[in-house]
């Protein structure tokens, strides 16, 4: 497999003497980078080394200060974890960064969805407690705004929010409870509805009943004998994924945290390529 991909990269290179930047090339370059050092020689092309194959002939060699801060990449990682790094890797022809973005994307989404599955897909929501319960939450005798009071009563969502578009439907259901955007063909809300959120025609008593029904449902799930502590574990996974994505967002915006990498005036296109030749 690695040999086949390396051959593909070789064909690309011999055709244009410049690596064309599409998916096959990226995967091939990564495979080549971690293949045996004498693979090029064995294939009859001794001039091909890890350095020549993983470095584009038209590199966009930008210094770290020219690359960062990258607001667009930060926003992309905020929307989809890892997408900012993928975008940067693609734009700068930087395979290891692209691969890193893909790994972050898979790992963080895996954690988030696994956590949701452990919580029976009912642990990512933002309730409308303040509006529905008729109680005003006050700090220093000042009434908290509805959204802040609701986040106060559901702090887990303050962390889950940072997972991006996978967590944001909860805000849509919070703001537009009557909208059927996240619904199936039968019109039923598929993404979990926001407890307490209801249209203007619904009175407070009905809202309270909805919240009580929601809590009864949640409690029944947690008390199931086969659940154990999986509810809490699911919440932990989803919150942790959100918190870790905060790091990923900042990394996409400001670059790798390692001080030595920031100090380098000229960042090599493929880190490690120099090591392979020395």
């Amino acid at each position: 497999m690695a040999r086949r991909l390396a051959e593909l990269a070789l064909v690309e290179r011999s055709k244009t003497m410049r690596l064309r930047w599409h998916f096959t090339s990226v995967v091939a370059m990564i495979c080549w980078r971690y293949s045996p050092a004498d693979l090029g020689e064995r294939m009859g092309h001794p001039e091909l080394t890890a350095e020549t194959m993983t470095t584009s002939t038209t590199p966009e060699k930008l210094s770290s200060t020219e690359r960062y801060p990258d607001l667009l990449a930060g926003l992309l990682s905020l929307a989809v974890p890892g997408l900012g790094q993928v975008w940067q890797g693609w734009r700068w022809r930087y395979p290891s960064r692209l691969l890193k973005g893909l790994v972050l994307l898979v790992v963080l989404h895996g954690m988030f969805f696994y956590g949701q599955a452990l919580g029976q897909w009912k642990n990512v929501f933002l309730p409308q407690y303040q509006q529905a319960m008729g109680e005003e939450f006050r700090v220093l005798n000042v009434r908290m705004p509805d959204w802040l009071a609701n986040v106060y009563w559901r702090p887990a969502y303050a962390l889950q929010f940072w997972m991006g578009i996978t967590a944001w439907p909860a805000i849509w259901n919070y703001c537009f409870p009557e909208s059927k955007l996240f619904a199936n063909r039968l019109g039923e809300v598929v993404y979990q509805p926001s407890p307490g959120a209801a249209g203007p025609q619904v009175n407070r008593w009905e809202r309270e009943q909805k919240i009580k029904e929601f809590h009864r449902d949640i409690n029944q799930i947690q008390l199931r004998p086969d659940m154990g502590k999986r509810w809490d574990l699911g919440l932990l996974y989803t919150m942790l994924a959100g918190v870790l994505n905060l790091l990923v967002i900042y990394e996409a915006y400001a670059g790798p945290f390692e001080r030595s990498e920031r100090r380098e005036s000229r960042v090599p296109l493929v880190p490690g390529a120099q090591q392979a030749t020395t």
Partner: peptide, 26 residues
């Protein structure tokens, strides 16, 4: 649930290390 501990440990370490460097060996 305790089997999740090493998994979480590895995943958190991986993400934390990934934001520190671009070099996969590192």
């Amino acid at each position: 649930i305790y089997w999740h501990l090493p998994l979480l440990l590895i995943l958190v370490s991986l993400v934390y290390s990934a934001v520190r460097s671009d070099d996969w060996n590192t």
